[in-house]
């Protein structure tokens, strides 16, 4: 009838097509006056300006030459030369930027995959098997969630230097394979999404525990898997302290470390300002696209504790 109502139906339609299988849709919104609607939208728009402004500035700055970076307004284009800048970024110092990007993908990709599988297995066990000390283990893992990651980086460095792994891929990769938060999420999700009756039925049918986990449980826990993977991936990708502490060889750096290094010497080498900006632009854009396009998975995972009553 009203535009508001049409907007809701339109939105619901979209949700239904993007989210299969769709849950029961119920009318849940309360009708508001158009004045209220304008007010809310305005408030949201102000917030959006705050969140998008730096990204806008970065995009504009990435198109500028070093001289116009300082010489022109930060908000408007001035002789855009995005391609030249980006080529400079990827070719500087023998293409080290590409190497950093690959390193980041390696650390995040491998770390996230292994951490996800381990977390699901551990979470499933903690949820579905009773064994001595189960609650103790779970509380230890919960405490692991509470301990700040950076407080562990230095002790980890001391440990790694004792076994001679400092300044290798392993020194960053090994600590990234563990995710206490993933185990926590995995347990909550397994409790809610894996029915005991199904496990019993499979056991009666003669399936081994190994097979049950890999063919049945993993499939049931897929939404949690996606969430844990995404969190871990972003976590490792954004991690800075650990590689900073562990690595001294530039060719092992992830992007974050490399860019900070460029930025920190840019007062002596002004051309590195533009490289740091261009590199930041290059590294931020794909992640942003991924985040927005995968958004429904974030949402799906975030309230795992309360879904499926």
């Amino acid at each position: 009838m009203t535009t508001t109502e049409r907007a809701y139906t339109g939105k619901k339609g979209k949700n239904q097509s993007s989210k299969q299988p769709s849950t029961v849709q119920k009318p849940r919104k309360i009708q508001r006056s158009p004045g209220w609607r304008i007010l809310v939208t305005a408030a949201l728009a102000v917030a959006a300006v705050y969140f998008l402004f730096p990204v806008y500035w970065l995009t504009i700055a990435a198109t500028k030459s070093t001289s116009s970076l300082f010489g022109s307004s930060g908000l408007a284009l001035d002789n855009p030369q995005l391609l030249t800048n980006l080529v400079n970024v990827v070719t500087y110092n023998g293409g080290i930027f590409g190497r950093w990007a690959l390193n980041s993908v390696l650390y995040s990709g491998v770390g996230a995959v292994v951490a996800t599988i381990c977390s699901l297995a551990a979470g499933y066990c903690l949820a579905k098997f009773t064994f001595r000390g189960r609650e103790v283990w779970f509380n230890i893992i919960l405490a692991g969630v509470m301990i700040p990651g950076t407080a562990l980086a230095l002790p980890l460095f001391l440990l790694m230097s004792q076994v001679g792994l400092v300044n290798t891929y392993w020194s960053v990769l090994l600590p990234s394979l563990v995710s206490p938060f993933g185990v926590y999420l995995g347990r909550i999700y397994a409790q809610a999404a894996v029915p005991d009756s199904l496990l019993e039925a499979s056991r009666l049918d003669g399936a081994g525990e190994f097979r049950i986990f890999f063919t049945l449980v993993l499939r049931l826990m897929m939404p949690a898997a996606v969430t844990i993977f995404l969190f871990q991936f972003i976590g490792i990708w954004n991690n800075f302290f650990l590689p900073l502490v562990m690595l001294s060889d530039q060719s092992l750096y992830p992007i974050t470390l490399g860019l900070v290094q460029w930025q920190s010497v840019s007062d002596r080498h002004p051309e590195l300002y533009q490289l740091a900006i261009g590199g930041a632009f290059l590294s931020v854009i794909p992640i942003m696209i991924a985040i927005v396009s995968l958004q429904r998975f974030w949402k799906a995972g975030l309230t795992e504790g309360s879904v499926k009553g």
Partner: peptide, 30 residues
Amino acid sequence: AASAWGVRFFRSAYFLPYGVPGVIASILWG
């Protein structure tokens, strides 16, 4: 409250900075 236009756009816009590593966000704001 969903009484606004473009809810999906706004939600993405607010979430976007989460994909920016802390150091790069700091370089940017710096």
